[in-house]
Each structure stands twice: as structure tokens, then as C-alpha cells.
């Protein structure tokens, strides 16, 4: 970093080059994330295609209301992140800090609701290990549904935890006014990541919670 160009690393020629590099790097990382979750979506696709009834029965044991509330919360947090990126671009440090804290709170609410859901499933013996119990047409196949449910939402929640960690790291930097129009790459990168986590949930919600509702087997 040089004094004349604060925040510009030595191996870049300009802020533009640095910003575009950071942005491209983040998008490439998101490609890897798409492929990572893509593998699990493939599992979901094949197994659901094989066991449609067992999957619908499993899905009807999920709480649509909590799922919908969580969807609203998460999309809300995406909005606060989008506004946070804006604040960083304009160099409004205080607004940035407030928006980051809001995002953190919304993310925390999401994870809180998620853990309530998880603990219900544990009590109902729906965690897919050997203690799994389910009254349905083919409990073994419904166990597969819950295996996929826990893997996908679990990895999603893990991503949110990592995101929360990044927010905690960003807040002190934002507080000290480090971000401005030249140098907001960290905020933007985090924003892209958080939106991606939101995107995954946008698909998980209908695929896991809503798929058997029309059959009304519950």
C-alpha cells in the first residue's frame, strides 16, 4: 500500500484493475459454490424422481410457516446488504455499520428459527440416523428425504455462519471509515456471497417445504 493511493495493493496499477480483479475473483468463487450445491440438488432430483410419494410425505412434516418467515427474513437481509454496499460506495461509514449490524441480526434470526426447526425434528425422531421413526408408505425412502433436508439446510446454515463471521470482521473496518468509492471491495465481495446464500435458500424453500402441500397428506 502506498501513501498516495490508500488501499491500492502494490501489484495493481489502478483502483479499477484492483476492483475488477476482486469482483471477478468473487464471481469465480461463486461458480464453485454453485457447483457445490449443484451436487446436492442433483441428489435431490434423482431421489425425488424415484420416490415422489415418500418425499412429499417427508416434506409435509416441515413447517411451512417457519420456512416462509425465514424466507422473508433472509430476503430482508439481502436488502440490507445491498444497501450496505451502497453505503460503502458512498463512504457513509455509520450507515454501513448500522446496515451490517442489521444484516447480522436478521441472519441470527434466521439461524435461530432454523435451530428451533431442527430441534423439533430431533424430538420427532426425524433425524435420519438409526433412531429415525416415521409412519408412512416407505419410511426408509422418507429417511432419504430428511438426509437431504439436513445436508442441504445444514450446509446452507454453515455458509450463513461463515457470512456472520465475515460481518463481524467487516464492522470494525467499516467503523474506522476504511471503505469508500475506491476501496469497497471487501464489502462488495461479502455482499455477493450473502446474496448467493440467499439464492440457495430461494430454491431450497419451495423444493423442500412446498413440494407436497397440494397432496394434503398431512
Amino acid at each position: 500500500m502506498s501513501e498516495a493511493h490508500p488501499g491500492l495493493e502494490h501489484h495493481f496499477d489502478s483502483y479499477d484493475q484492483q476492483r475488477e480483479s476482486a469482483k471477478l475473483g468473487m464471481w469465480l468463487f461463486l461458480i464453485t459454490e454453485v457447483m457445490f450445491f449443484g451436487g446436492m440438488f442433483l441428489l435431490y432430483l434423482i431421489y425425488r424422481w424415484r420416490f415422489p410419494v415418500a418425499f412429499a410425505e417427508g416434506s409435509n412434516h416441515l413447517d411451512v410457516t417457519l420456512g416462509a418467515i425465514n424466507t422473508v427474513i433472509l430476503i430482508g437481509s439481502s436488502l440490507t446488504v445491498a444497501l450496505a454496499v451502497r453505503a460503502a460506495q458512498l463512504g457513509k461509514s455509520k450507515a454501513l455499520v448500522v446496515l451490517l449490524i442489521l444484516t447480522l441480526l436478521l441472519g441470527g434470526m434466521f439461524l435461530g428459527i432454523k435451530s428451533v426447526e431442527y430441534s423439533h425434528k430431533f424430538h420427532q425422531h426425524l433425524f435420519p440416523n438409526d433412531s429415525f421413526q416415521f409412519e408412512g408408505t416407505s419410511p426408509n425412502n422418507t429417511r432419504l428425504f430428511f438426509a437431504i433436508y439436513f445436508c442441504m439446510t445444514g450446509f446452507h446454515a454453515l455458509h450463513m455462519l461463515i457470512g456472520a463471521g465475515i460481518i463481524l470482521w467487516l464492522i470494525p473496518h467499516a467503523w474506522r471509515g476504511r471503505f469508500n468509492a475506491n476501496n469497497y471491495n471487501y464489502v462488495e465481495g461479502f455482499g455477493l456471497y450473502w446474496h448467493f446464500v440467499d439464492l440457495v435458500w430461494i430454491f431450497l424453500f419451495p423444493l423442500l417445504y412446498l413440494l407436497g402441500r397440494n397432496l394434503g397428506t398431512h
Binding site: S78, V81, H195, L199, I202, F205, P206
Partner: peptide, 12 residues
């Protein structure tokens, strides 16, 4: 879901 994803990607 795809439409929502599109909105998030395009604008957010």
C-alpha cells in the same frame, strides 16, 4: 424461484 433468483442476481 428462478424469477426471484433472477431479480436478486440482476439487481442486488
Amino acid at each position: 424461484a428462478t424469477l426471484k433468483a433472477g431479480l436478486v442476481i440482476w439487481y442486488f
